[in-house]
Design a protein around this nucleic acid. Structure first.
Length: 257
DNA sequence: ATGCCCTTGTAACAAGGA
């Protein structure tokens, strides 16, 4: 099985590149974040021509997550039990069972700044996700992947000094990730195709990509049965190149199952 | 060259991203 996760930063703006990438990469399951289309607005027909079924949890303008599968989609659920909103529900998580594996596509709140209410929301959201995942792991193999908006270690940002006082690198955020791993998940490390650090995000501004001023904030967490079956995992930085890319690169994981 | 911010909604900007 091959699965992938990708924050596409608008599925409408990215559609030509998404279709090209799907046709070339052929994942069995693709978890998407920041689709930025309202419910029903996902280009399901277009990806359907490539053999994919779509489960979408859309919201106008911001957020939006989806699961694309050519292994079927069962038990699709938008959000998760106990998920907080701001104050209303936001389209940040969707789950589906594909080929016997439970997949969750997550778009964790940004947090803005550590003194912002959005930061508190981010920590609450991650805590609620941990509780929901603790229930999921009892039922079978689980993959939770997406844009976590947290760099797990200082090595996961291009310059820790540049992030002093910023979100994504604070101790509570990193502890929230550690707590999620603690309910039964293993980090699936992806190898970079260039350089020594598997960054997944580079700001559009100031040539950040070309100087490799990136962050590793897109993550794949899996239960041990899945993590132990990983043959390869890569950050496809090729998808960050060229005309009209997302600011995130996909992570592609191959399983020996 | 991988090449120096982008996207959406709404109507010339505002807001959000990280």
């Amino acid at each position: 099985m091959r699965f992938a996760t990708w924050n596409v930063n608008s599925v409408k703006a990215r559609l030509p590149r998404l279709l090209e990438w799907l046709d070339a990469t052929k994942p069995d399951v693709l978890l998407l974040q920041e689709t930025k289309v309202a419910q029903g607005g996902f280009p399901s027909a277009e990806v359907g021509e490539l053999g994919y079924e779509t489960a979408e949890y859309g919201q106008g303008r911001w957020n939006g997550v989806a699961v694309l599968s050519r292994l079927g989609l069962e038990d699709v659920r938008n959000g998760f039990p106990g998920e907080p909103g701001y104050p209303d529900a936001e389209a940040r998580a969707i789950g589906a069972t594909c080929g016997g594996v439970r997949f969750l596509s997550v778009y964790v709140p940004n947090g803005r700044t550590p003194d912002d209410p959005h930061y508190t929301y981010k920590l609450s959201w991650l805590s609620a996700l941990r509780v929901a995942l603790a229930d999921e792991v009892a039922a079978g193999p689980v993959v939770v992947a997406g844009d976590f908006n947290v760099a797990p270690t200082d090595a996961d940002v291009w310059d820790p000094a540049a992030f002093a006082g910023a979100t994504h690198v604070t101790v509570p955020e990193r502890e929230a990730l550690s707590a999620i791993r603690g309910v039964g998940f293993t980090d699936v490390p992806a190898r970079p195709l260039k350089g020594d650090r598997p960054f997944t995000y580079w700001d559009y501004r100031a040539g950040a990509f070309h100087q490799n001023l990136g962050m590793r904030i897109d993550l794949v967490y899996a239960t041990p049965d899945i993590a132990g079956a990983v043959k390869d995992a890569v950050v496809d930085r090729e998808a960050r190149k060229g005309k009209g890319p997302s600011d995130h690169a996909p992570i592609v994981v191959d399983l020996d199952r």
